[in-house]
């Protein structure tokens, strides 16, 4: 199951470096949508949850797998939709100040 550890670590380190570089001078109004976008990307965990479901057995196993997959799917779908809605706000009123942030 475990692939070559060195390859995995190499990929991880390069991924971290890409992550540092990919965000550059972001205007402050885009901070919250960008956070939300990154949030949807880690929804990729749903793939891992699906792979684990494939080998699940017993009631406890299936319940854990069900919750894991449901959580992951919620992260993905909700994340992308809410990011799109945030970005839609920019398009509708490009001149308007962002209303994101703090308390409701």
């Amino acid at each position: 199951m475990s692939l070559d550890l060195l390859t995995a670590i190499t990929v991880f380190v390069l991924g971290v470096l890409v992550g540092f570089e990919v965000i550059s001078k972001v205007p402050a109004t885009l901070h919250t949508p960008l956070m939300s976008g990154a949030n949807s990307i880690h929804g990729i965990v749903v793939i891992g949850a699906m792979l684990v479901t494939a080998t699940a057995e017993g009631i406890v196993g299936y319940v854990l797998a069900f919750v894991a997959v449901a959580f992951g799917a919620m992260n993905v779908v909700g994340g992308y939709v809410v990011t799109d809605r945030m970005l839609h706000m920019f398009k509708a009123k490009p001149a308007a100040k962002s209303t994101q942030g703090g308390a409701s």
């Binding site: 990929v11 380190v13 890409v18 992550g19 965000i23 990154a38 990307i41 880690h42 891992g48």
Partner: peptide
């Protein structure tokens, strides 16, 4: 998972 996770981990830290 490693690629996407590392990507979000690092870009999230910068953000």
């Amino acid at each position: 998972l490693i690629i996407a996770g590392a990507l979000v981990g690092a870009s999230g830290a910068i953000l």
